[in-house]
Design a protein around this nucleic acid. Sequence first.
DNA 1: CAGTGGTCTAGACCACGCG
DNA 2: GCGTGGTCTAGACCACTGT
Lengths: 243, 243
Amino acid sequence: MPSRRHSIADDLRNQITAGRLKPGERLPSETQLAAHYEVSTATLRSALAVLQGQGLVEKIHGKGNFVRRSLRRITYRGGCAAQAPQTAPDATLRITVRTSKVRAWSHLTALLQVPIGSPLTEFHCVSYEAKSPHSLARIYVPRDLAPAAVLNEPRPYPGAEARFAALRPTSAEVRETVSARLPTPDEASTLRISSALAVLAITRVTADITGRVVEAALLVLPGDRADVVFTTHHVTDEGWTER
Amino acid sequence: MPSRRHSIADDLRNQITAGRLKPGERLPSETQLAAHYEVSTATLRSALAVLQGQGLVEKIHGKGNFVRRSLRRITYRGGCAAQAPQTAPDATLRITVRTSKVRAWSHLTALLQVPIGSPLTEFHCVSYEAKSPHSLARIYVPRDLAPAAVLNEPRPYPGAEARFAALRPTSAEVRETVSARLPTPDEASTLRISSALAVLAITRVTADITGRVVEAALLVLPGDRADVVFTTHHVTDEGWTER
DNA sequence: CAGTGGTCTAGACCACGCG
DNA sequence: GCGTGGTCTAGACCACTGT
């Protein structure tokens, strides 16, 4: 026996996919929907939570629940292998970059392999696709590695794929760690997602040929509509190191 | 002003990290905790949901809430680049494999680039770390590519890193797509996670040198304790193709 | 069976967005 | 100010786990 919230979620989902509720449209208020389905508001809200988790509905406090406009998924291409910029043109993408000087603290010291208190440059990037928040990136570079020319450059970040590697031909190794976690309250409000909706968090550490870490990037993508893609090409006559 | 559920979650988290609540230990019942914090059971449950999302607490219906035993994170290494097997020895890992013959349907036909109804071999793998579910994999191979010798092999899968590539030196390209989503009810019960906790879903498609897809793997890792790591090495004197 | 978590109710009051 | 969602209450009843 399906639970009440799931039957309601299924019904609303059908209405969305069938087009009876159109992208961008506002759903009836939670009170109205609760009355319509003859459930309490708490139950109805839990049904909407299911749809939020699937990226079909966006809640905006004080305004209502909306059918998500862009069903297009965000694709982050990892690996930095010889890679053309994003195949789909993201001309509509707008980026804000805030640059600040910070000091290395806690886990940043481990990522960048620098002492506590080392001077860093922080790039705080938020991208928008038609006013809708799209992704968030915090990029840290040891300050002695960030010339002014690069400082004022719009930073590369997922989605606007002017790869950082192209600017820094010395980079030799990129390690990207992907995990899912709940957003911080900060991230939730920046990306306009529920704080109960997981984000895809990518930690990207770039080292140069000497092994020195030249960049650490903390990327956050909304988990309901983001994919991370890695393509690996194998040289077939290459031997495999076992153990 | 922090919400009640977050203060409670913070308090319990402190008790766990401080060791006053030990790994594997059962927390007081939700009724008792609600009485202790002087909140309703609903509020207390939402506080526990925060801790579940952070992988600190595991709920078991009919038994209670438990401090998660293994704080060790699951690491899936992607890329299949010349890679040593998992650095940390996973000797305690137990795998169950169920093999069955299926027919390609819906999105599997797209992944494997085969017609609808093509004969496939499905490997349904679940790994356990000391009775605790660890990861889940469903691997599909076109049946004409799965010789009997490979069929009876314990399958490679995230965590038990006998890489598939080692068995199939003809594979030339691996594309791995990582996303976060809510688990199906099926996956939630198999991995013993809340159906509200996101999973890391990895779709891995392996092609041989001719471009033929030889394997599609759908991997599911519990989002509260899994990381996906990709390491990319660049040949420094290699040119970057721009566009 | 008793005890646990899972679902749900019918409210109350607070915080946000907009006119 | 009004309507929206956000948080919370004090219960009820159901489903699962063990004895």
